[in-house]
């Protein structure tokens, strides 16, 4: 397979077919991210178009310090965040629900079941998938975005900070809260199933 960097040089030289190949290679990941962020396949389809067109127009400026994939990814994340900002009418100050409880000495109160081996299993249970879908949809927006960008999409804290305009400590704190909330949801799922 021809490497992205080679296709990129050809695309920069004006070869449309090379650019199209790059698009085909990265469109699924970019679409998946924007669809999750925007919770709408239609909006995601538009953002993907905007992002790849913007990437095409910026091709001459692209120096290849980063991979083409992560570059386009960041462009798309920015477009998606811009849309979300427009959508947001009322500011939420909610906090995610769920998280561990401690006694007055700071010890965990509840028993903790270790279901972590399931994370590496071959296929994911459809019901578990649903439970995770629902739990992530319930997270307050700012928590959900950070969680998706970091844990699902694998962006760095700095990249998220650039995209959202928030500080790295704020991002980390939200990510931690989001993980605790999702962990609690998955924990409930396994507890319900066992009972």
């Amino acid at each position: 397979m021809v490497e992205d960097s080679v296709l990129l040089l050809r695309a920069q030289a004006g070869e449309m077919a090379a650019f199209e190949q790059l698009v085909e290679r990265h469109q699924h990941k970019v679409f998946a991210m924007t669809a999750r962020m925007l919770r709408s396949d239609d909006d995601a389809a538009e953002v993907v178009q905007e992002a790849f067109l913007a990437a095409y127009k910026k091709l001459p400026e692209f120096r290849g310090e980063s991979a083409f994939g992560s570059w386009v990814y960041r462009i798309a994340a920015n477009y998606a965040l811009m849309r979300l900002r427009h959508r947001k009418v009322t500011a939420q100050v909610e906090e995610p629900e769920g998280g561990p409880e401690f006694n007055e000495r700071g010890s965990l109160i509840d028993e903790v079941a270790d279901w972590s081996p399931n994370a590496e299993g071959q296929t994911l249970d459809a019901e578990l998938r649903n439970a995770i879908d629902e739990a992530s949809a319930k997270l307050p927006e700012e928590y959900r975005q950070v969680f998706l960008l970091r844990d699902v999409e694998g962006l760095s804290y700095e990249e998220i900070a650039t995209a959202t305009g928030d500080s790295v400590p704020a991002i980390k704190s939200r990510l931690h809260r989001a993980r605790l909330s999702l962990r609690a949801a998955i924990d409930r799922f396994y507890a319900d199933r066992a009972s």
């Binding site: 469109q27 699924h28 679409f31 998946a32 669809a35 999750r36 993907v48 279901w115 972590s116 399931n118 994370a119 590496e120 994911l124 578990l128 998938r129 995770i132 879908d133 992530s136 969680f147 998706l148 844990d151 699902v152 993980r179 999702l182 962990r183 998955i186």
Partner: peptide, 14 residues
């Protein structure tokens, strides 16, 4: 494991 499970679970195809 929460991060891993969520990443796998939220995968999506265009």
């Amino acid at each position: 494991a929460t991060s891993t499970l969520c990443r796998r679970s939220l995968a999506k195809k265009m």
